[in-house]
């Protein structure tokens, strides 16, 4: 009973932090706008704020929350602290889809290429394809760790195919593909948001509905089974949720490194619990604010360039992982 007020306090703090970072992300961009610009009716300021910075900040919140929850689900499923949202090969599959689209588009139908959705659909198809393979295998292997290895192997295969495509591509298409792998939060327009938001929302709701089974899994699969949890069904739901969360966000923003792996650890440390009732909302808030912070950092260069979000998130996320490993060592 004593714990509840502390957690409530933490949640209020996290909500305020996310809100503050959200506002900062809108206020600061690669062009310095006067503070009054937020309310001015100058059409250019209006355009920048409502059609560029607002969807970008929202994308940071949605993506940060989604990949962090996906990371948490994977860590719980595999009972492995180094699992992340992409271990099942989602991002490798998505990269393969995008690579086929950007580098091998000469054999794709024309109206597919010209529609604005081609890139997103290719990424989704690539990600879903790999996940379906993993899902199919999940019914055949008993051990979660085997599934982890299968996911990593599929990722490697997709990566090799991408390399083969790159080998025979012209430098301009290559650069376009490389830029995609840098990740971009600003690629999400309001039109894209209308598709991204519902898909991600379904994934988040799905994650929230299986918290009990998730808590059971923490005890080990045998214990969970003893508690009456259907392991195969839970696994299936987890993979679907991760597909929706990591797959959708990767399709729209490109891969975002390490955030999904690091945030669950931060939240566990913050709330000192592994209970998914606390972890899930905590992870969402923490992931959202961390990615907002990363996005603010991408605007640091003042000469017109912006840093790739994927690099910044790795710069922020990787030290957290190292710190966790060192801390585990010293504890044991």
């Amino acid at each position: 009973m004593n714990r509840l007020p502390k957690n409530t306090l933490l949640f209020v703090g996290l909500i305020l932090l996310t809100a503050l970072l959200f506002l900062l992300d809108i206020a600061f961009g690669s062009v310095r706008l006067p503070l009054e610009a937020l309310l001015s009716d100058n059409p250019i300021y209006h355009e920048i704020i409502f059609n560029f910075r607002l969807p970008k900040a929202l994308t940071a919140v949605i993506t940060g929350a989604s990949i962090s929850v996906a990371g948490l689900l994977m860590q719980t499923l595999f009972r492995n602290p180094l699992a992340g949202p992409y271990v099942l090969g989602v991002s490798s599959g998505a990269s393969l889809g995008v690579a086929i689209f950007l580098l091998g588009s000469s054999f794709l139908p024309m109206h597919f290429i010209q529609s604005g959705w081609g890139l997103v659909i290719s990424a989704i198809l690539g990600g879903v394809f790999v996940l379906l393979l993993v899902l199919g295998i999940s019914f055949r292997v008993r051990q979660a760790v085997s599934l982890l290895i299968v996911g990593i192997m599929f990722g490697q295969i997709a990566g090799s195919l991408v390399t083969i495509l790159q080998n025979s591509s012209n430098p301009d298409s290559l650069k376009l593909f490389v830029v995609w792998t840098f990740g971009s939060l600003s690629a999400v327009s309001w039109t894209y948001m209308q598709v991204m938001l519902p898909l991600v929302a379904i994934g988040l709701v799905l994650a929230l509905t299986i918290q009990k089974s998730l808590n059971g899994l923490l005890l080990g699969e045998n214990y969970a089974q003893g508690l009456g949890i259907n392991i195969v069904r839970t696994r299936f739901l987890i993979i679907i949720a991760v597909a929706l969360l990591a797959g959708t966000t990767t399709a729209f923003t490109g891969p975002i490194a390490f955030i999904g792996m690091a945030v669950p650890h931060l939240v566990r440390g913050l709330f000192r619990t592994s209970n998914h009732r606390i972890m899930l909302p905590g992870t969402m808030l923490c992931g959202a604010s961390l990615l907002l912070l990363c996005d603010l950092a991408t605007q640091l260069p003042s000469d017109g360039y912006t840093l790739p979000i994927n690099a910044i998130s790795a710069l922020v996320g990787a030290p957290i992982i190292i710190w966790i490993i060192l801390k585990k060592r010293s504890n044991s």
């Binding site: 062009v31 250019i44 912006t306």
Partner: peptide, 15 residues
Amino acid sequence: SLGDAFNTNIERLLI
């Protein structure tokens, strides 16, 4: 400067 030609800085362009 509008940054990289493959990743053009839209905010600067708008201004």
